[in-house]
């Protein structure tokens, strides 16, 4: 079973794959928009926090999508 962090990364990766046909950059942008619209603040905050954590294993596109998130209120 995945940890909750792993699950967030997995979910983001899944979203990316479904946008992949649009091209890499578009997929990253679409994924970031999707996360903005549908992820709760807590999840977005974890995603942003993971960018800074050395132990977090983030695939490149997931990292890019997380990096595009704004910190929620």
């Amino acid at each position: 079973m995945m940890s909750n962090d792993q699950r967030l990364v997995h979910m983001a990766g899944q979203i990316l794959r479904n946008f992949a046909a649009q091209g890499r950059e578009e997929a990253i942008a679409a994924t970031a928009e999707h996360l903005t619209l549908f992820w709760a603040p807590r999840m977005k905050a974890r995603a942003i926090a993971m960018l800074e954590e050395p132990g977090a294993e983030l695939p490149e596109e997931v990292r890019a999508a997380f990096a595009a998130l704004r910190h929620p209120a």
């Binding site: 549908f38 992820w39 709760a40 807590r42």
Partner: peptide
Amino acid sequence: DPEPGLRIPNMLDAATDGA
């Protein structure tokens, strides 16, 4: 709140995180 809330599975994840 202008931010979306947690979905059911997210709630359960957050619960196991203690949040």
